[in-house]
């Protein structure tokens, strides 16, 4: 069977849908390689260690011992932590809600895609396109949620350092 004959058999919408999936797969592989490139645990640990040593060298611990007994200071420290916990919960809830929104919208999108379907191949193409959209949307939700977790972790570390900094301030 030559190429022209194949083109007559395969609906163009199905060819496009398969091409979109192929493109998505290729892009995902590329993204995965970039992510692998970004993971540098040894360098990160050395970097953090150097930064911590530098920060501790510049910290005067004498005031800290006195401030630890100051109820106002301790209340402020607790308040900041409570704010972080509240904001963390809000961000995580936002992320969870976004999953629900994506799921709700997926059904509507699929129904819209089926409107002009006239053959089994077009049905398959519509299903492939809708599935790809859904995968992309879920992936975006997942990366957003991962980012939220990263931001929360970063915030707790910042809070720890901020607390020590405030306690040691004259």
């Amino acid at each position: 069977m030559n190429a022209d004959a194949t083109n007559e058999i395969v609906d163009p919408s199905l060819s496009d849908a398969i091409k979109d999936w192929n493109d998505y797969t290729a892009e995902s592989v590329k993204n995965a390689l970039i992510v692998l490139e970004a993971i540098t645990p040894v360098k990160d640990n050395v970097q953090v260690t150097q930064q911590v040593i530098e920060a501790f060298k510049n910290t005067d611990w004498q005031p800290a011992s006195k401030k630890l007994l100051d109820p106002e200071v301790l209340a402020a420290v607790g308040r900041e932590l409570a704010e972080i916990q509240k904001a963390a919960m809000e961000r995580l809830m936002e992320g969870c809600n976004q999953y629900l929104v994506t799921t709700q919208e997926a059904g509507k999108k699929f129904a819209d895609n089926l409107k002009d379907v006239k053959s089994p191949q077009q049905f398959l193409a519509a299903w492939l396109e809708s599935s790809l959209d859904l995968v992309k949307d879920y992936q975006q939700n997942a990366t957003d949620q991962a980012s939220n977790l990263g931001t929360i972790q970063s915030a707790y570390k910042a809070w720890l350092q901020s607390t020590l900094q405030n306690l040691s301030a004259k």
């Binding site: 892009e27 970039i34 992510v35 970004a38 993971i39 990366t143 991962a146 980012s147 990263g150 929360i152």
Partner: peptide, 19 residues
């Protein structure tokens, strides 16, 4: 490196790759 940090980078870099 923690999984959080990996996830953070995953998010940033996958968004970046789209560009």
């Amino acid at each position: 490196m923690t999984s959080f940090t990996v996830n953070l980078r995953t998010r940033v870099l996958s968004a970046l790759a789209a560009a």
